[in-house]
Write a protein that binds this DNA or RNA. Structure first.
Length: 257
DNA sequence: ATGGTTGTATAACAA
């Protein structure tokens, strides 16, 4: 079982990169964030022609999440199913091949102290609660997506330089820790405790990839029953270096499942 | 240096 996450920064703009990556890597499950498209405008055909099923939770212009899978998704849930976060499409979950898969696009936070920052903190608190209200740590569960937090100094190009800013702030660390206390393990860090690899490089920074100005903010987390099944986890740097890339790249975990 | 890039409600906004 090969499961991957990718912030596409517009699924329609990224179709060439997405389709070639799928053809080259043949994932069983691919979770996409920032699809930036309403469900009835999602480019379904190219995925379905390749034998994939789709579970979509999109909106116009911003946000949007999707699950692409070989096995059909069951019990698809979009959003938090309450009135706290009614408008933006940032979370979709499904049961696929006996796994519960939760795909999230965590709010960016914009700038520390802004309204969007407050929303990010509330969102993380709400997600910590969702895990506990709907799931147990003994079930085979994968939480993956654009987490928008680089949790440790090794997860960002220069921790001292960016500590206290959006994406590398103690208030985020506390909330992510609380989420993970549910019983989740970071797949990449579990297998590569000292690897300084990144999944996102800012478009605005010239030659950010070549200069190593990156962040590891796209994560795959596993509950305990799946940690023992984890055989590999890698970040596809090469895919970020192609023509018209997203600002993120693919993170892939392989499970004996 | 408060710039720079990319995408979408193509005009400002978000990231």
């Amino acid at each position: 079982m090969k499961i991957a996450t990718y912030n596409a920064a517009s699924v329609r703009a990224r179709m060439p990169r997405l389709l070639e990556w799928i053809d080259e890597n043949e994932p069983d499950i691919l979770c996409i964030q920032e699809t930036k498209v309403e469900d009835d405008k999602f480019p379904r055909d190219e995925f379905e022609q390749r034998g994939y099923h789709l579970a979509l939770h999109g909106q116009k212009a911003w946000n949007g999440v999707a699950i692409v899978s070989v096995e059909p998704p069951e019990d698809v849930v979009s959003g938090f199913m309450d009135d706290l976060f009614p408008t933006d499409a940032r979370i979709i979950s499904a049961s696929i091949a006996g796994l519960r898969v939760i795909n999230t696009y965590v709010p960016n936070g914009n700038s520390v102290g802004s309204d969007k920052w407050t929303y990010k903190m509330r969102w993380l608190d709400r997600f910590a609660h969702l895990l506990r209200e709907r799931h147990t740590p003994d079930e085979p569960l994968v939480w993956l997506g654009d987490i928008n937090i680089a949790p440790k100094p090794i997860d960002v190009f220069d921790s001292a330089k960016v500590l206290g800013g959006v994406g590398h702030h103690p208030d985020e660390f506390v909330r992510l820790d609380r989420i993970l206390e549910f019983g989740l393990t970071d797949a990449f860090r579990h297998l590569h405790p000292d690897a300084k690899e990144f999944s996102y490089w800012d478009f605005v920074q010239p030659r950010a990839v070549a200069r190593g100005i990156g962040w590891r903010i796209d994560h795959i987390y596993l509950t305990e029953p799946l940690v023992g099944c984890l055989s590999s986890c890698r970040i596809d740097l090469e895919a970020r270096q192609r023509e018209k890339p997203s600002d993120h790249t693919f993170v892939i975990a392989e499970l004996d499942w």
